[in-house]
């Protein structure tokens, strides 16, 4: 019975110790994180600037691509169908989705780019907490842009396969 009590007491003490010390661990982890940000602020900023520039080029490339797909493929094909008195409702709907999604992509990219500007402007040496908070927001914004670009590609693929179906008929 004594041994049982001893076991329970030991287990209870361990639980209490873990409960009390876990905030300390979390605090230490945060200190390390902010300390690291502060220490390597210069390098982090350089990397972010390079990423920002790459992102702008990527955006320019994607913009040209979407414009080409719209002006050389989607719109003229639908126009040709309409002029031949054979308007294809499915393809017209995809054209509409393409335009709407492109607008959403542009808006999400603008928000992301603004966030990047704000992040680069933060002095990560003096304000690592603020920097990390802004970085977290920026990661979410980038995930949205990534998702929007995937959705654009899905619509383009849908359009391609819809036309392929017509050809196979």
């Amino acid at each position: 019975m004594y041994k049982e009590h001893k076991k329970v007491f030991f287990l209870y003490s361990l639980i209490v110790l873990l409960a009390v010390s876990s905030p300390c661990f979390a605090e230490r982890a945060e200190e390390e994180l902010y300390g690291g940000i502060s220490q390597y602020c210069g390098t982090i900023k350089q990397t972010l600037t390079a990423i920002s520039h790459d992102d702008s080029r990527m955006r320019a490339e994607l913009g040209a691509y979407y414009e080409k797909i719209a002006n050389n493929y989607i719109i003229p094909l639908n126009a040709r169908f309409v002029k031949s008195n054979q308007p294809n409702v499915g393809l017209l709907e995809l054209q509409k989705q393409f335009a709407e999604e492109r607008e959403e992509f542009n808006e999400s990219y603008i928000e992301y780019a603004r966030g990047m500007e704000v992040l680069i402007a933060v002095d990560c040496k003096k304000e690592p907490e603020k920097f990390y908070g802004q970085l977290t927001k920026l990661r979410e914004a980038r995930a949205v842009v990534n998702q929007e670009s995937r959705e654009m590609e899905e619509i383009i693929e849908k359009f391609y396969y819809a036309v392929e179906e017509l050809y196979e008929k």
Partner: peptide, 16 residues
């Protein structure tokens, strides 16, 4: 794939 999320990861930025 464009705007990969790993680009802003801690590892990529050198953040511990």
């Amino acid at each position: 794939e464009y705007f990969k999320t790993e680009t802003l990861s801690g590892e990529a930025l050198g953040i511990p």
